[in-house]
């Protein structure tokens, strides 16, 4: 069995929105410890991993199951979440469906038909990073939106005291600079200078669910994939994004 209740359907909508911008489908692996999932986008440039420990749920009961979900349909349903709705996710094993229930003044129940994605699980690799930037989510998001006016990709640079996002266009350019003294920065760790270039469309998709008050962790290397981590209402999201490399 699987039945889980979340305090805020609206908060979970942000998680589903973010997953749906990068992926077409995902296989949720549920067990008594919580819900996990990991998948790569169709072009194999980005990887998303989701971990919702059982403590993030108001109620939680689960045996081991793999629940394959078509994300566009799930996103459309989650768009119907209202401010005070709680969310119940419940596996109907007989009908092979996931019930998505909004609980408020009554119950509104959608039954989402499941996909067979067994065996399609993605292993999350361990990469080693020396530079870690912990930054306020809205500052990062605004800098990426600024850069989007200038180019379709950015260069991220990190040194022991500074983090920069640069975009170069044919005529114009943009730089966002954050020093460890700035309000936007929680911490900058690392002993060397590193830089990598990344596609902006992917970066903007990855920060889609981020809003004011969220804290984002960035792991950066030289021409290495970017690792990004943040939490939304107890749901831990991790992304890897392959870099652009000079030819």
């Amino acid at each position: 069995m699987f039945k889980a209740k979340l305090e805020s359907a609206k908060e979970f909508k942000k998680v589903v929105d973010t997953m749906a911008t990068l992926l077409d489908e995902i296989c949720l692996q549920v067990n008594e410890e919580g819900v996990r999932a990991a998948a790569m986008d169709p072009s194999h440039v980005a990887l998303l991993s989701l971990n919702i420990p059982r403590i993030a749920f108001e109620d939680y009961q689960a045996d081991e199951h793999e629940i394959g979900i078509e994300l566009e349909a799930f996103k459309k349903i989650m768009n119907r979440a209202k401010a005070k709705d709680k969310l119940i996710l419940e596996l109907d094993e007989e009908r092979n469906r996931l019930n998505v229930i909004f609980e408020n003044q009554g119950k509104r129940k959608f039954s989402l038909s499941l996909l067979d994605l067994s065996g399609a699980t993605t292993k999350v690799p361990e990469l080693e990073y020396h530079n870690v930037i912990t930054i306020k989510g809205d500052a990062l998001k605004e800098a990426l939106k600024d850069a989007d006016l200038i180019s379709d990709h950015v260069i991220m640079r990190a040194s022991p005291y500074e983090f920069k996002i640069e975009a170069k266009g044919d005529l114009n350019d943009f730089t966002a600079e954050f020093s460890s003294e700035d309000d936007a920065i929680i911490s900058i760790e690392g002993e060397e200078e590193v830089k990598s270039a990344f596609n902006l469309e992917y970066l903007l998709d990855m920060v889609k669910g981020v809003s004011k008050g969220d804290i984002v962790k960035l792991y950066l290397g030289n021409d290495m994939p970017l690792k990004m981590e943040y939490s939304l209402a107890g749901c831990e999201l991790m992304f890897l994004l392959a870099p652009r490399i000079e030819e």
Partner: peptide
């Protein structure tokens, strides 16, 4: 000129 690479260039997927 830079080109987009895939995650599989960095680890086995």
């Amino acid at each position: 000129k830079s080109k987009q690479v895939k995650l599989s260039d960095f680890f086995k997927v």
